[in-house]
Amino acid sequence: MTLTAPATQAEPAGTSAATVEFRGLRRAFGSTVALDGFDLTARPGELLALLGPSGCGKTTALRMLAGFEHPDSGDILVDGEDVTRVPAHRRDAGMVFQSYSLFPHLSALDNVAFGLRMRKIRTGERRARAAELLDLVGLADRGDQYPHQLSGGQQQRIALARALALRPRVLLLDEPLSALDAKVRLNLREEIRRLQQELGITTLFVTHDQEEALSMADRVAVMRAGRLEQCAAPAELYARPTTAFVAEFVGTMSRVPGRLAEARDTVEVLGRRLPLDGDAPEGALDVDVLVRPEAVRVAADAEGTARVVATAFLGSAIRLTVRLAGATEVKADLPTHEAAALAPGAPVTVTLPERPVLVAPRTA
């Protein structure tokens, strides 16, 4: 089942897509700094994912946009209007929480209509709009049921419909899928993305799940320690990370010892001289070369000094863990038919393709 806007809906939520700007936000909770000069702009109509480890400040940023938290300094603008000190109920933002936060004593229809009732929308109009939203999220036949009668995925759809009922300029999603099982989570993230594109509503999505962010977002903002590390389209973020942190946080990455040339424009790694992707770090010439598993080439070689130590079946590919000389381990993804003969213990040679690589200071 997919989420499809009903043809009768005359004024869908999000038709006026907003620009959202975070400017120099700082927020500390005692000695803990949650945001430290955070700058980011969400473009009209895009789905922007805030991705990062626990404690990086992504939820704090979202709650500030919703009006539930206020910065110690900095500004939040929506379509150029400063909303930094505007109360939450006047922000024109819809928010969906991880825990659903449905009212257990209200039916699905009344949950969706709750915000409209608070705005004193007439009974007939609010029930009609709530019914439209239930239809939009594929639950038109569940309006008279209560939260305890619905599955987790259905409850999250109700929460989404409630957030959209007020036709907000911005939709905020705070890890809305993390409490669901894997299959429901996969289906619902695809449907949320389809719905967001149909409505064209500017959406900020907080998650710590990199696969979720890369599969759903127009752009992904990777955060670390209250600051923005990089914001880019998923393909660019994966293929051209600008920092070692982004490279290792987004997708699988191996570190292979290398040595910079004196000119610091190339690096010698696994017997090859490769150009650099980005600037070389200052300091020692000994560095780590960061490589994705699909960029590592592995071939059976009776005289090879590397050994396969583990294999993992991934469907169309098999991921090998290969131990190099010096106990360094590297991940390599090979087509299943190529890797089938490379069992643990097999001697192999490992090479990298002739392409630029990202390097980072050598780890201990």
Rank of each mutant, 00 (worst) to 15 (best):
residue 135 D to E: 15
residue 96 V to S: 02
residue 21 E to W: 03
residue 47 L to D: 07
residue 110 D to G: 10
residue 97 F to A: 10
residue 47 L to T: 13
residue 27 R to W: 07
residue 40 L to R: 09
residue 62 L to N: 06
residue 95 M to S: 04
residue 46 E to H: 08
residue 114 F to V: 05
residue 118 M to H: 04
residue 93 A to N: 03
residue 85 R to M: 01
residue 58 K to E: 09
residue 152 G to Y: 08
residue 118 M to V: 04
residue 144 D to E: 12
residue 70 H to E: 14
residue 83 V to L: 01
residue 57 G to R: 00
residue 150 L to V: 00
residue 124 G to I: 10
residue 85 R to F: 00
residue 116 L to N: 06
residue 131 A to W: 00
residue 130 A to I: 00
residue 96 V to Y: 06
residue 36 D to N: 13
residue 72 D to S: 15
residue 147 P to A: 02
residue 36 D to F: 03
residue 66 A to Q: 08
residue 111 N to R: 04
residue 42 A to S: 03
residue 25 L to Q: 09
residue 75 D to I: 14
residue 130 A to Q: 04
residue 52 G to I: 12
residue 30 G to V: 06
residue 89 H to Y: 14
residue 106 L to M: 13
residue 36 D to W: 06
residue 81 E to R: 15
residue 132 E to F: 04
residue 101 S to Y: 00
residue 105 H to A: 15
residue 58 K to P: 01
residue 150 L to G: 05
residue 99 S to W: 09
residue 19 T to Q: 15
residue 129 R to A: 14
residue 89 H to V: 03
residue 18 A to H: 08
residue 103 F to G: 09
residue 25 L to A: 12
residue 60 T to I: 09
residue 93 A to G: 05
residue 87 P to L: 10
residue 74 G to H: 08
residue 98 Q to E: 13
residue 83 V to G: 12
residue 86 V to Q: 08
residue 130 A to S: 12
residue 24 G to Q: 05
residue 67 G to E: 13
residue 31 S to M: 01
residue 124 G to D: 10
residue 134 L to T: 04
residue 38 F to R: 11
residue 77 L to P: 00
residue 122 R to W: 10
residue 113 A to S: 13
residue 89 H to G: 01
residue 41 T to M: 01
residue 135 D to M: 09
residue 145 Q to R: 15
residue 20 V to G: 00
residue 152 G to V: 04
residue 119 R to F: 03
residue 115 G to H: 13
residue 134 L to M: 13
residue 128 A to H: 12
residue 109 L to S: 11
residue 131 A to K: 07
residue 56 C to H: 05
residue 72 D to C: 13
residue 120 K to H: 15
residue 91 R to T: 01
residue 67 G to S: 06
residue 145 Q to M: 06
residue 62 L to R: 05
residue 106 L to D: 09
residue 50 L to K: 14
residue 74 G to Q: 02
residue 39 D to Y: 03
residue 107 S to Q: 09
residue 29 F to G: 05
residue 71 P to Q: 01
